[in-house]
Design a protein around this nucleic acid. Structure first.
Lengths: 246, 246
DNA sequence: CGCGGTCTTGACAGACATCAATTTCAGTGG
DNA sequence: CCACTGAAATTGATGTCTGTCAAGACCGCG
């Protein structure tokens, strides 16, 4: 079976995380997927919803967020192509957060029913997707550490290190350069700081010649020093091979 | 098959979350478990370790923590009887955080091999334990929100609301009163604030007559007002029936 | 060319961290 | 039975990181 474009995204993604075989490939390739385009800042899934399908990022970025106390909100994760941010909806209802597009994005919807059938047929695929949700959880733990222990500058630096590495895995960060259509307000909401302070810290990173950030394009100039400031250790990403050469 | 004491802890726990049948029960009851006692503040699992067994809390509390920047550390979760804090080690290695006892605790170890065999035999149990890890992840998301958006007073209030409700589920918080052998430093490390400030905020909660906290015993005096301060919505706990009467 | 969102800058206030010292108290030993 | 001891809790003073308010600059888009 010839996998379609969205399927290959998912396959490429999983391939970088675990080793799997042709049977796994065929199972995934047989999943029905419906592609849809969404404009920037568009809510794909609402908190409280009961879903009958999952969404996979094909192109662009999604982010998950929860309303915080009062007017505040907290972004709890960003998602890159290949991610399935609501994979957990297979087993948990209702959704405990929103999912929105960051910039314009292409999303593939996978109905729960055939997804569950595929998993029921293959304990191996079950393990693979279970593992995906576990890595997801590991990122949340690191975000707790990020927001709980680091100052604003390090929080932003850490976020950038994480995004660069996750995008590199799916081939979207050549030369430490990548597209990231987040406003400074998004960064602030993700790091638990004010937008104004986020602005100042980003300027600080720029003036230290650690990053370039113009429009929606980020370029990391000195990954080692950025990682040092961020106290960044990629172990929590649980990538298959962490031998990332610079 | 007659389940032993540790097994019944696990069964009771799962029973409050999902509905399951006798076959499930038998499968769980057949799991080999080795009981061990640990003193307070004892490391059960180290970051970086590759495990061949999971640990279930039988009595007392465990907590998971990661070293933060410099001398700081971040507690990312507390665990009550019935929890399996390193369930994810079935699919992910190495551990990305430490697990320690809070006070003295009794822990049951379950070897990975029979655990995996049980799951391989029962897609239903696989779903149940997968779901457990998904709820775990949901708590992390809420912790991100807690630390990222709320002030110190609300963070502590939120933590107390969460602990009370989770303990109530396993029958360990009668009359809104429960044992919790955490020092103020633990609270501080969990909420991302300094121990001194944690002390002042706890005093504030006491003086407002919201809680009593003497030694290792906490009593919630006014859950409604505490939940209001904490902006606490138990939906993220994904309990089966959330009809908790006061 | 004008509008609105985003970014930027400055001044000021406040929540919280840090430093230092004292009190409490459970556990220990004489 | 009662000092002794070290950890935990508490209190006070001071500094700072970060939030808030206000206003202006920049820029993409219609």
């Amino acid at each position: 079976m010839k996998p379609g474009f969205p399927h290959s995204r998912l396959l490429a993604r999983l391939d970088r995380i675990v080793a799997f075989n042709d049977a796994d490939r065929d199972g995934i390739s047989a999943l029905p997927m419906t592609l849809r385009n969404f404009p920037a800042e568009h809510e794909i899934v609402a908190q409280g919803a009961r879903l009958n399908k999952c969404c996979m990022v094909v192109d662009g970025f999604l982010y998950r967020h929860k309303p915080g106390d009062g007017a505040q909100r907290q972004i709890v994760s960003f998602h890159v192509p290949g991610d399935i941010p609501d994979l957990y909806s297979l087993h948990i209802n209702p959704m405990d957060h929103h999912i929105s597009t960051l910039g314009p994005a292409v999303v593939a919807f996978i109905p729960h029913h055939p997804f569950r059938e595929m998993l029921a047929r293959s304990p191996r695929l079950t393990d693979i997707f279970w593992r995906e949700t576990l890595v997801d959880a590991s990122l949340f733990r690191e975000w707790v550490v990020n927001i709980g222990t680091r100052d604003a500058l390090a929080r932003i630096a850490h976020l950038l290190c994480e995004m660069e590495m996750r995008l590199e895995v799916v081939g979207l960060a050549p030369n430490l350069t990548f597209s990231f259509p987040a406003s400074q307000t998004h960064i602030a909401d993700a790091c638990g700081i004010s937008a104004i302070h986020a602005n100042r810290m980003i300027q600080e990173l720029r003036s230290r010649r650690l990053i370039e950030w113009e429009g929606k394009t980020i370029r990391i100039l000195d990954r080692d020093r950025l990682a040092e400031i961020a106290d960044f250790d990629p172990a929590y990403l649980h990538l298959r091979d962490r031998a990332v050469v610079s």
